[in-house]
Design a protein around this nucleic acid. Structure first.
Length: 174
DNA sequence: TAGGCCATCTGGTCCT
DNA sequence: AGGACCAGATGGCCTA
């Protein structure tokens, strides 16, 4: 990651110090109306115990959620690595990564499809003529990708750089 | 300084 | 019951 991640790591570490207060608990939800102080009756101790248990569960859930998001980000990072590198070496944002991946897959599928069309029927070196071009394997439909206005109206050749379909994907980047 | 991006927390919902 | 997943809220950092 980058400096941002580092900063947020610090944040997450601070979380481990148990910074939550009762006020923090209601941070994301609608703050309850200021309530009068109620005298605790009986059961106060168990109420506290319940509170502790709840807080403990919450912290565990936070930890799981953090790990889940880290896993998601790791997967996203792996995806970035297999995508064509950007010329300016800038890091793709999450949404850009997903959209670029979408278009990249689409462009590769188109390349295969066009190559298959131009190949002589006598020499199918793999069985994509009947099945893969049918809807069974259903690559991204041959229409242009949803996230892009890119419509390769004039793909130069089957061997044309597969990136032709990507250029309009991340505006101003490719 | 505003806006974009991000990590984290949180409560709700669904699933096992 | 507990975990996974999700979406909203919040606050920090960075850049134009």
């Amino acid at each position: 990651m980058d400096a941002r991640a580092h900063v947020h790591d610090i944040d997450s570490n601070s979380c481990d110090f148990f910074p939550l207060t009762d006020d923090d608990d209601s941070r994301a939800s609608a703050p309850p109306p200021p309530q009068k102080k109620k005298r605790r009756r009986g059961r106060a101790r168990s109420a506290t115990a319940v509170h502790v248990v709840k807080k403990s569960r919450r912290l565990k859930a936070n930890d799981r959620e953090r790990n889940r998001m880290h896993n998601l980000n790791d997967a996203l990072e792996e995806l970035r690595e297999v995508l064509p590198a950007l010329p300016d070496d800038s890091k793709l944002t999450k949404i850009e990564t997903l959209r670029l991946a979408h278009n990249y897959i689409w462009a590769l599928s188109e390349t295969l499809r066009i190559a298959d069309l131009t190949r002589t029927p006598a020499e199918p070196w793999f069985s994509c003529s009947s099945s893969s071009s049918s809807s069974s394997s259903s690559p991204p439909s041959s229409s242009s990708p949803a996230y892009s206005a890119c419509s390769p109206a004039s793909p130069a050749s089957p061997h044309h750089d597969a990136l032709f379909g990507l250029r309009a994907l991340v505006p101003g980047v490719l």
